[in-house]
Nucleic acid binder design. Structure first.
Lengths: 235, 235
DNA sequence: TCCTTGAGTTGAACATGTTCAACATTCGCG
DNA sequence: CGCGAATGTTGAACATGTTCAACTCAAGGA
């Protein structure tokens, strides 16, 4: 239903069409209010008022309150991507690259943690447009997987080509697992999640390199086959 | 409305006090309506009406609509446990025991799948009483972990004692992972989730038995240490 | 017997996400 | 320009989870 026609510019001057402006105003208002007051405390009436539009108008552009959160995802991802550039350009160690990328995500998302639980409850609902597998979130998801592809591509990691091909997707799933843990992490500064990354990434590295051991390689192939057979062809 | 409360002392027999009856009536009504109409379509007004109480009274016993779902968890777990008894008593192969237990869960939960997505969105929200880590759901959770302990205890699996000790918790986490997949599984009869179980359990078995390989044992120890350090001491 | 106390119960009121019929504006085109 | 269609906009109305001040009632003591 919602088409997100924002990508390709229909008219010659797409920068500030009226609709784009209204849309942007609503997103800006929602983002601001979400950040200051959290998800539940931010009413659609407040968003509309802040944006200077009517409630119904907000629903004209966004199918539901949840859709407004997608803007948040994009914002976080954009900041994450920007924050990773330096490390991706300089570092070559796989453990260092992956750890850095994951920890930068934690940094970027920290300010959203308080109400992230409210967001991610929608991300876990299959029917929600906020689901991490939903078509609506496909652009952000694809971007995140592409980021993982860069993590692998620029690293010194040596694995079988077949596994290497699937690795970005696997690493994105790993990241989703980390996010799940992060949502539950009440420790100050998310130290527990950081601890998880620092401990788990070297283990993952060991596991990946262990795929060269004959007895382990078969298991790795099984895992790859399993994931390939289960992840929807959409991704 | 049968009264007969006059006969004997109320305190000595707490099994069916008036309050317990009311509580049970509300749970029964909610369960019935959830099953027939789903979560969202079941209003608190409908539940109250079905139970023959007022809306406010339902809230006197249950803090929110979500709390009513806990009764559902208990129901599913009880059915799961009962369904597993035969296999646990007869089968000794680890792969067979674990696969059977997981598949029986899929059978038991099948009738709830349609609205399970709506339930589990709360299960993924840390602040919700429905969270799989919440104190409110502790009894059911502990029961589920105990079930996994029986799966391990009665099996032919040979692993290091340290790992064996942590295995029930690990297997429960595996089950939670399966449930997460299951929630997203739209295939008829949940064939994809069953496929996942049939493929993943042998892999898990291989991995566990591979912990005897010197180069792998260290990784296994790392994983155990990681989980032990991260799972809250409550569990 | 009468009062006190506290658990149990009520339904109207409230807050808020969402819808919708109506109105306004802009656009495309002759 | 004129005008019909598409797009944009409005706010009142609706549905439903939740709250709360008031009420009922049974038990127990003085």
């Amino acid at each position: 239903m919602v088409t997100l026609a924002t990508v390709t510019a229909p008219p010659p001057d797409p920068t500030t069409s009226k609709a784009q402006q209204t849309r942007a105003a609503i997103v800006a208002a929602a983002t601001k209010l979400f950040r200051t007051g959290g998800y539940d405390a931010t009413t659609m009436r407040a968003v509309a008022k802040e944006a200077g539009v009517s409630v119904g108008n907000a629903y004209y552009y966004f199918g539901s309150k949840e859709h407004l959160v997608l803007a948040f995802y994009d914002e976080i991802f954009a900041a994450h991507l920007a924050g990773c550039e330096r490390v991706l350009a300089t570092e070559t160690g796989f453990v260092e690259r992956l750890s850095a990328v994951l920890e930068i995500w934690i940094d970027v998302a920290e300010s959203s943690h308080e109400f992230a639980g409210k967001f991610f409850k929608h991300a876990a609902e299959p029917t929600s447009p906020l689901s991490v597998f939903s078509p609506e979130s496909a652009p952000t998801r694809d971007g995140a997987i592409a980021l993982m592809r860069r993590v692998v591509a620029g690293s010194d990691l040596k694995v079988a080509p077949a596994l290497r091909e699937e690795l970005p997707l696997l690493l994105w799933l790993v990241q989703m697992g980390m996010v799940l843990f992060w949502v539950y992490d009440a420790s100050p500064g998310r130290t527990r999640t950081r601890q998880l990354v620092r401990q788990a990434v070297p283990i993952l590295d060991k596991l990946l390199r262990a795929t060269r051991i004959p007895g382990v390689r078969g298991i790795a192939d099984d895992v790859v086959a399993l994931v390939k057979s289960l992840v929807p062809p959409t991704a």
